[in-house]
Structure formats: C-alpha cells, structure tokens
Amino acid sequence: MKILARRLIPYFILLFLPLLASASSVRRVDMAEVAGSAQLVFEGRVIAKHIEHTPGSRAIHTWVKFEILDLIKGQYDQPSIELSFLGGTAGDLSVTVSDMQIPAMGEHGIYFVEDISRPLVNPLYGWDQGHFLVQFDKDLRRQTVST
C-alpha cells in the first residue's frame, strides 16, 4: 500500500499543479470593469508610510497614507485615506508579495480601491490594474497618466 501511495504522489502533484500555479495570479480585466467594480477612485499623493508587524505573527503590513486631491468615484469625506498593503520589512523580518507594487513616498497617481471596509493583500482593484501614475512629461509640457 505504501509503495502504491508513493507512486501516486507525482500524479497528484501534476493533477493539482495548475490549481497551485493559478492561486497567486490576478485576472486581467478591462478598464470598464476596473472603473465599474472599484468602490472608491481618487487622484492622490502618497504623504506617509509606516510598517506594522503584529507581535507573535509573521504578518507585516505597509500602511500608505494618501492625500486625496480629487474624488472621482465613491463616498469619502476625509482629506486623506490610509490603505494597508501586505508586505514590508520590520527589523530582521521581511514579507514580500511577488508582483505587488506598494505606492512610493511622494508618488502622484490615480487609485482604484476595491473595498475600503475589509483588509486585502492589495487594496487596489486588480493590483497594478488599479494603480496609475501621474507624471509631468517635460517634452509634452503636460501631465500624463501611465501604468
């Protein structure tokens, strides 16, 4: 029986490998879905960041505070919002989530927030699909929006 089980293990791995491989992927969506499904959309600037490590756990969250420059969609009556992203470094403990871009200090962008009422690994809709940078293009002499 043990020999049979050992022989079947590689087949079980091959059977479940596609499920494991897709577990961390993010489905690509079009702009209409990003805009329609986001609870909150705003133009803002990153004004503060801090990292929290829950004692006794390996969870680390980077809290990013945004100054809201323009509310595009949703209800929010404060001049700033703080969003939690899984990951960061606290002392000698680091947590990294592959392919996640945590907004940088001073960054100016348009942010599509999936849900402000519950904690998510990345609060932006579709991860990078809900994260657009606003930058000044010197050649064009105007602001541009990019992913």
Rank of each mutant, 00 (worst) to 15 (best):
L86M: 06
Q101F: 13
L40C: 13
V121Q: 02
I72K: 06
H61I: 09
I3T: 12
V97M: 06
S117K: 12
S84R: 09
I81H: 01
M100A: 03
V121F: 01
E114V: 06
Y111R: 08
I51G: 02
L86T: 05
I3E: 12
S146I: 07
F136D: 02
P18F: 08
H50C: 10
G126H: 00
L124D: 06
L133W: 15
G56P: 01
I3K: 15
I47F: 03
K73Y: 07
V26H: 02
V29M: 11
T96M: 10
I81D: 05
E43K: 15
F42R: 04
Q129V: 08
K65R: 11
K65A: 14
G56R: 00
I68C: 02
E82M: 06
L124G: 03
M1P: 04
W127F: 05
H50Y: 14
M100P: 05
E82H: 12
E52D: 11
A5L: 14
P119E: 13
L4E: 09
A23P: 03
H131Y: 08
V64T: 13
A32F: 12
D70A: 10
P123E: 04
V113W: 10
V121E: 01
H53A: 12
D99W: 13
V97G: 04
I47M: 07
I102H: 12
V113H: 05
A59L: 09
S84E: 08
Y111M: 08
L93F: 06
I68V: 08
I116D: 00
A90P: 10
H61D: 08
T54K: 11
L14E: 01
V134S: 11
F66M: 05
L17G: 02
V34Q: 04
I116E: 02
I3Y: 14
H53F: 13
H61Q: 14
T62P: 02
V41R: 10
I60H: 02
L20P: 00
L20D: 02
S94I: 00
L86I: 07
H53M: 13
R118P: 01
P55F: 01
V134I: 14
S94E: 09
S117T: 09
K138C: 01
T62Q: 02
S25L: 15
P123G: 01
D128M: 14
P10M: 07
F42G: 06
L19F: 15
A5F: 14
Q75E: 13
A104S: 06
L120W: 07
S146E: 10
H50E: 12
P119A: 13
H108T: 07
T144A: 14
N122P: 11
M105E: 15
A48V: 11
D139H: 12
Q101R: 09
M100N: 07
